[in-house]
Structure formats: C-alpha cells, structure tokens
C-alpha cells in the first residue's frame, strides 16, 4: 500500500501549494479526536487511524507525515472516495486539531514483535 501513501502525499503537497491555507501546528488533540469521530473520518480511516477501504483504499492516518496545511488541502478536495469537507463543515482550526490528534495515535510497529503477525 506504499504507493497509495506516496500518491496521497504528492497530491496533498501539490494541493497545499495552491491552497494558501494557514499553517497551524498548535492543534488540540482532545478536540481533534472529538471532531475526527463526529464528522466521520473514522468511518473509512478507523478510530486508530489504521486505514481501511471504501471503493478505494483509505490510507492509514496514524502518525500522518503531512503538515496541517497539507491535510487541510486534502480535506477540501479529496481524491477518489474522500468526501470534500468545506470550511463550514471542518474549519482550519478543526483540521489543526485533527492533525494534532493523529500525531497522538501510535503508528505502525514492527510486525515481528507481534506473535500473531510474525512470519
């Protein structure tokens, strides 16, 4: 699924370059979690940001390697199945909060350390 992450990253960075969205790195992860659940992000990406799929794969978001403004750009004009979230639905402040929340989620670990996944 690495190609999905790569294409998502590229799309978001390109979009961010044109969005002019303000950068914020001081989001509130508690508020971010509430918004993440309330506006339905978890439906495709999972409560742990583990990813999932609808018609297309929904990439993992835990420990998202994008700045808040890139996440905002992606939210405003998502690709494939991603619903567009306009500012009246999810404000830039909400995006910063969601971004902060995603940084609190544990990302992937070494599967060899989990007996059920070790090969």
């Amino acid at each position: 699924m690495s190609h999905i992450k790569t294409s998502m990253l590229a799309a978001a960075l390109i979009a961010a370059a044109f969005s002019g969205a303000p950068a914020r790195a001081d989001g509130d992860p508690v508020k971010g979690k509430a918004t993440f659940l309330a506006v339905g992000c978890f439906e495709c990406h999972g409560r742990s940001g583990q990813g999932g799929r609808m018609n297309y794969p929904a990439p993992p978001l835990a420990q998202l390697q994008l700045p808040p403004e890139s996440l905002a750009a992606f939210l405003r004009e998502g690709r494939n199945d991603m619903p567009p979230y306009v500012a009246s639905q999810v404000s830039d402040a909400d995006v910063a909060d969601i971004h902060a929340f995603l940084q609190t989620l544990p990302g992937p670990t070494d599967p060899k350390k989990i007996p059920l996944l070790a090969r």
């Binding site: 999972g46 742990s48 990302g107 992937p108 599967p111 996944l117």
Partner: peptide
Amino acid sequence: SMIDAALSNATIGWDASPIT
C-alpha cells in the same frame, strides 16, 4: 513488499477497542 506493507498496517491499533 505488498505483504510487508499489509503486515505493518495490521499493527496499527492492535490493542484498540473496538477491535480492528
């Protein structure tokens, strides 16, 4: 590589509730 990526993704939220 495809299998490795799947295994890595499977670890996210491993101990979460509700269960992944």
